[in-house]
């Protein structure tokens, strides 16, 4: 009874209620994109010269401390596109999509549709899967049908003085030191922006015979969201 009286008596702090429950906001999360941004793409002849290697990196500038928490979105598919007849339209694709700790690869396979929208080519006979490697453990790789697969954190293989590069490309005095940046920094002062940082990598090695055999191909990588 005593409590009740007091409760009825004063309303001063009843404002606290608005905090907990008001949808006033938890600010919206960062607008997405980070987990579909391609930072780099490589294609080169493998150790076994009959094979070619494709590398796609996403999510750049991950510090060592943040690497363990970095992950692939299961709504984002990374697709290597291969044009074998010089018309810049993909004749073959290799698709990579994660599910529950594993990266699944489909292809090389002729896509059922080319261009901006894709479905996952689950009927492809070529492909395989690999457990996504975790930070702090050895790289897990897998092979199937002559192909090899890897997915997980790696050192960012890219190197450049990105900061100076950007300042040179942007007209005017960008860093506010009173003069326009007209030259790169000399050796010793120039620095590799990506040194010491990691990326999330997808690496796939494939027999050349599965992607045209010989001659020249055109290739590019895409990220696509469900």
């Amino acid at each position: 009874m005593k409590n009740l009286k007091r409760v009825l008596g004063i309303g001063v702090v009843a404002v606290a209620s608005c905090f907990v429950i008001a949808a006033d906001h938890i600010d919206a999360p960062e607008v997405s994109g980070g987990n579909s941004d391609i930072t780099d793409f490589y294609a080169f002849q493998a150790e076994n010269e009959d094979n070619l290697v494709f590398v796609a990196n996403i999510q750049g500038l991950i510090s060592p401390a943040n690497t363990a928490a970095a992950s692939f979105s299961e709504n984002v598919m990374v697709e290597f596109n291969i044009d074998t007849n010089q018309d810049n339209v993909e004749d073959l694709v290799i698709q990579a999509i994660p599910r529950d700790g594993k990266m699944y690869f489909f292809g090389p396979v002729a896509p059922s549709q080319t261009g901006l929208n894709s479905i996952i080519e689950t009927t492809s006979t070529a492909g395989g899967s690999v457990e996504i490697s975790s930070y702090g453990s050895a790289a897990i790789t897998a092979s199937n049908g002559g192909m090899s697969f890897f997915a997980g954190p790696r050192d960012d293989p890219f190197f450049m003085d990105f900061a100076r590069f950007t300042q040179i490309l942007t007209p005017g005095d960008d860093d506010g030191d009173g003069e326009e940046e007209t030259a790169f920094l000399p050796e010793g002062s120039a620095s590799d922006t990506f040194a010491g940082t990691n990326v999330m990598s997808i690496v796939v090695e494939v027999p050349k015979s599965m992607i045209g055999g010989s001659g020249k191909i055109n290739t590019w990588v895409e990220s696509k969201r469900k």
Partner: peptide, 24 residues
């Protein structure tokens, strides 16, 4: 998690000390 975030910060701060022009 907080410990890792602090490590993350120290990582970038150290890099900035060495290369203050790297605005990223």
């Amino acid at each position: 998690v907080l410990q890792l975030v602090k490590e993350d910060f120290n990582f970038w701060e150290k890099k900035l000390e060495k290369e203050p022009n790297q605005f990223p």
